[in-house]
């Protein structure tokens, strides 16, 4: 029953996205223009460290832009309608899943653009792809929850940034550290596995907290 509800809500979000494509293309345009400005200002053959830093900064802002609207687009009336037909946990899980899908697509696009425009300083490409996917999923989960919180307040977009940055910094630090693995930096034995598991555990706890806390957010 729950699963069917989650799937129906998930499908609804995808259908909405397919019918109103302006938001999706807006984010893609954002990615392209960012990468292009970077290309014009620092050119290809970027230093590995700078490439890495720029990639995470861009992914962070893409994530905020892509995820922020997931709750903002729901009007009051529509939320009331969902409230009457589904459970809050089903609604939250469908949003989390949808944002995961969205960010995986966005991450793939930005990775391709980054490599095309700024060159590819990574030594182990597949490793970097894996790490960036893991990181993108983590960012998307956290920002989905924060968008749910911010959607209850005024000036939602700026509030997202204020609420989100302090919380996201520890995870970003871990990810930037981990992604140095793809640039052939040697790690202490077991350290990379440890960080990976840590990030996965953090993400799992975000999902659990979101499902527990969201019911309190959405009743009015």
């Amino acid at each position: 029953m729950e699963l069917r509800q989650i799937f129906a809500l998930f499908k609804k979000d995808i259908l909405l996205e397919l019918r109103q494509q302006h938001a999706f293309y807006g984010v893609i345009l954002y990615v392209i223009s960012t990468v292009f400005v970077l290309y014009l200002t620092i050119g290809s053959n970027t230093d590995a460290e700078i490439w890495n830093a720029l990639y995470w900064v861009m992914l962070l802002f893409v994530c905020i832009n892509a995820v922020a609207k997931s709750f903002l687009q729901e009007s009051r009336g529509r939320m009331l309608y969902f409230y009457s037909i589904t459970s809050p946990s089903a609604f939250m899980i469908s949003k989390l899943l949808y944002n995961l899908l969205l960010i995986v697509i966005m991450n793939s696009i930005s990775l391709i653009l980054f490599i095309a425009f700024l060159g590819n300083p990574t030594v182990f490409v597949w490793q970097f792809i894996g790490i960036s996917m893991l990181g993108a999923c983590g960012l998307s989960l956290i920002f989905t929850m924060l968008a749910a919180i911010a959607s209850r307040a005024m000036q939602q977009a700026s509030l997202m940034a204020i609420l989100g940055f302090p919380i996201i910094i520890p995870q970003l630090l871990l990810l930037v550290r981990l992604s140095k693995m793809a640039f052939a930096e040697t790690f202490k034995a077991g350290a990379s596995l440890q960080i990976t598991l840590l990030v996965i555990a953090l993400n799992a706890s975000v999902v659990v907290l979101a499902v527990i806390l969201f019911p309190f957010l959405w009743k009015d």
């Binding site: 919180i149 609420l163 302090p166 919380i167 630090l173 309190f216 957010l217």
Partner: peptide, 24 residues
């Protein structure tokens, strides 16, 4: 209600990482 939710979420995200990240 909203600030209580944020307080719980932020605490749960923040403090584990404050204790763990500096060791890495």
């Amino acid at each position: 209600r909203v600030s209580a939710v944020y307080n719980i979420f932020a605490y749960a995200m923040l403090f584990p990482s404050i204790w763990i990240v500096p060791r890495i």
